[in-house]
């Protein structure tokens, strides 16, 4: 199959799919060499990346998916006659803690946030952004929470390494602090 043909067929399949398509799935559909498919995917990505296009081809949650460009959200929202929904600040904060610290218990989340977070954890479960990934081997066997595949889709991430980098703070360790104390005295 020449690359031009593959590109058109690939576009058709991506257009029709309602979920990110994994490489393996695409290989099974087209029965071509991985390398050829990879190149064509790359070409198609570049094609869509041009300013004049309304959609993008993105690598999401280990697969490939066509998505509308963020700047055209207002028009798509009119089509869907829905309002923008967004996670509250508290919910995003809780979600961020779970995403960076997973697997994490509710008690740990609450310690980090300094507030009761049970309701938010439940909300995030209902939205399927997080799930129970296990039980901690501690008294009471508390549930451990982690993010879902849908979390990656929700934020358009290829994998968890795509999370924003957390700022590192210098020397919050005890040694530095006690040194300062000495000077104060």
């Amino acid at each position: 199959m020449d690359s031009a043909t593959l590109k058109s067929r690939l576009e058709a399949v991506l257009f029709a799919s309602d979920e990110p398509l994994r490489m393996d799935r695409l290989l099974a559909i087209f029965e071509v060499e991985r390398e050829q498919l990879r190149l064509v995917l790359q070409e198609l990505t570049v094609d869509y990346a041009q300013e004049s296009r309304g959609i993008l081809l993105q690598e999401i949650a280990g697969g490939f998916q066509l998505r509308t460009r963020p700047e055209y959200a207002p028009w798509v929202l009119k089509l869907k006659s829905s309002r923008r929904t967004r996670l509250s600040k508290a919910a995003t904060e809780t979600l961020a803690i779970i995403a960076y610290r997973q697997p994490v218990t509710r008690a740990e989340i609450e310690y980090l946030r300094g507030v009761e977070s049970g309701g938010l954890v439940r909300l995030l479960m209902e939205k399927q952004l997080i799930k129970v990934v296990g039980k901690k081997d501690a008294p009471g066997k508390p549930s451990l929470y982690g993010t879902t595949k849908y979390f990656l889709e929700y934020f358009g991430l290829k994998d968890l390494s795509g999370l924003p980098n957390l700022q590192e703070f210098t020397a919050p360790d005890d040694a530095a602090l006690s040194l300062e104390m000495d000077f104060d005295n």
Binding site: R67, R86, E93, I97, L112
Partner: peptide
């Protein structure tokens, strides 16, 4: 620690989100 996650959450919130900023089939 809290400051770090607060910043992380803020950045995360700016990412294009599905059904808010971007749409798929």
């Amino acid at each position: 620690e809290y400051q770090r996650y607060k910043d992380g959450a803020q950045q995360l919130d700016e990412y294009p989100q599905l059904e808010r900023d971007v749409f798929a089939r």
